[in-house]
Design a protein around this nucleic acid. Structure first.
Lengths: 231, 231
DNA sequence: AAGCTACCTTAGAGTTATTAAGCAAACATA
DNA sequence: TATGTTTGCTTAATAACTCTAAGGTAGCTT
């Protein structure tokens, strides 16, 4: 099943399209990524792109999935780079890599953040959805490994509100029990703090007070280390 | 200086325009709020709106400013409603009112969140900017009052990284010294946690794990109470 | 060698934002 | 009261966009 000549050509132009779309996004903003402009950019005019995407939305979805993949790969690289370090260090480096990519690619991060247009669109753009999942998985996987090897302190399930308890149980089941509900609660708290802070930074929600959030992010990482039982 | 007949008419149609834009936003999404559609909705065709706004961006900005105002008013109402309660209670109620509005008006909140398109656009849409400021002020004002009447524990400035210290000093100065840098640090931590969580909820960043974030938000409020020295 | 398929093109319908030109009514003023 | 200016709207026109449809020219397949 091979790479026929045409197959290779198709992949090449597909890559060109992705690159052109990204270039337009970065250089001229989200609004500049139009079917026509992308077509112009890759040297073919307009409707030709409909042989590659069913429409504007799908193009955007595909490009976004690529961003997710790139971010996930950057994080995985940071995770694997120093795989002989203690797990705590690897987690911190992975988180730093996440922020570094987001800071370096704010426009791309903006598309990553852009909400899945309402929730239940039948496996919304499978490509994008899967890529997003892989991205989330990097961090949750590390926390799960930490949980296995060196469990961190968790609250007593009985102390949590019933509604929260149920949701945590569901989520724990959804990830195949890699984390029990109590540990999932700690993980989710950390994720909310970390990813929330990053989103607010990159999406300019903190410009009114900060010009450089590096120390704030580092402080967040420190607290994360405490919650997860390493320092 | 009066409300001439024409003035009153102008205000009325202006209100109609705002209402139409909001209706389109809520019922058909952000993309449906076009100059033409709004014009159609209020019964006048297209370019007439240019007598009210210089273009699409300004219309969106004005409508968004209205959302900010509404949210600020809801929060102020919650703050003033029980003004004989202890300050801690008033803060919590104000925060709950913020979330209640955001949950009830997710589309509007989405526009509120949408980043000021790059920062330094000369007093970006003064109306919107001021409204945003007033919104932020509600919470920061309460914390400042708390600081005056019953100071909460703060970190030692000397323990913070120099870069963070400088930024906190600048911010403290920018708000007229209502909070000293150390207290500003605590305030900003709280704001990041609270507003960050709310944004992630409303903008569907936590759908993968939660269906109802009420208990998570309440837990966040509890932690906030601890940080601010009330329980 | 003949046919099928995939890729690309141009045309066209229906949107949109925005500018320009023009009309009519309300207001201000002499 | 008559005149002129301002204000609110309309239609026309330009240039962009999405997307569909129809047609041509390669290349792959048999």
């Amino acid at each position: 099943m091979g790479t026929t000549r045409r197959d290779r050509l198709r992949q090449a132009t597909l890559a060109e399209i992705h690159a052109a779309a990204r270039r337009l996004l970065v250089e001229q903003g989200s609004g500049a990524v139009t079917i026509n402009a992308v077509g112009r950019e890759v040297g073919m005019s307009g409707p030709a792109l409909y042989h590659y995407f069913s429409g504007h939305d799908e193009l955007v979805g595909a490009v976004t999935a690529g961003f997710f993949r790139e971010l996930a790969e950057v994080m995985e690289a940071a995770r694997d780079r120093n795989s002989d370090e203690p797990l705590g260090t690897r987690i911190l480096e992975t988180c730093r890599a996440m922020r570094a990519w987001a800071i370096a690619h704010p426009a791309e991060f903006g598309w990553i953040f852009a909400s899945p247009p309402s929730a239940p669109n039948k496996l919304r753009e499978s490509a994008r959805y899967q890529a997003a999942h892989r991205f989330e998985q990097v961090f949750s996987g590390l926390v799960a490994e930490l949980w296995r090897t060196k469990p961190f302190p968790v609250p007593d399930l009985a102390d949590l509100p019933p509604s929260l308890r149920d949701q945590l149980r569901d989520y724990s089941a959804a990830i195949g029990g890699a984390l029990p509900p109590e540990a999932a609660h700690v993980f989710l708290s950390c994720w909310i703090r970390l990813y929330g802070l990053l989103c607010m930074e990159v999406l300019h929600q903190l410009d009114f007070a900060f010009t450089d959030l590096t120390p704030v992010y580092e402080e967040c990482l420190r607290e994360l280390g405490e919650k997860l039982g390493f320092r």
